[in-house]
Amino acid sequence: MIRIPCPFCGTRDHSEFTYGGDGTIEYPALDAPKEDWHDAVFLRDNVCGMQLETWHHVHGCRMWLLVERDTLTHEIHSVRPAHPGLAAMFETDQEAGE
């Protein structure tokens, strides 16, 4: 079991999360040439070693996270919210509610 330190919920089993995929992909503009879309949708670096990837805490806070994980050892080096703006809003809401 991989243990993922969720910045919102604390350290949880990976079975609470779903794996998104390569977190370095930048999707092109909607009117970008189809070659750019082909590369973003179909091609992968498939890193062996440290990889930036997305996970969704689907059975927890339901936030998307950006995780730095070693794909050979499964060691996790960093976890941060994938949408910092949304995360900040979430925290503000919580504070306002308190």
């Binding site: 079991m1 991989i2 990976h14 779903t18 794996y19 995929g21 498939n46 062996c48 990889q51 990837e53 794909t71 050979l72 050892t73 499964h74």
Partner: peptide, 10 residues
């Protein structure tokens, strides 16, 4: 369910 090069299962 997640990408990996480790030859061991969860």
């Amino acid at each position: 369910w997640y990408k990996s090069y480790a030859q061991r299962g969860n």
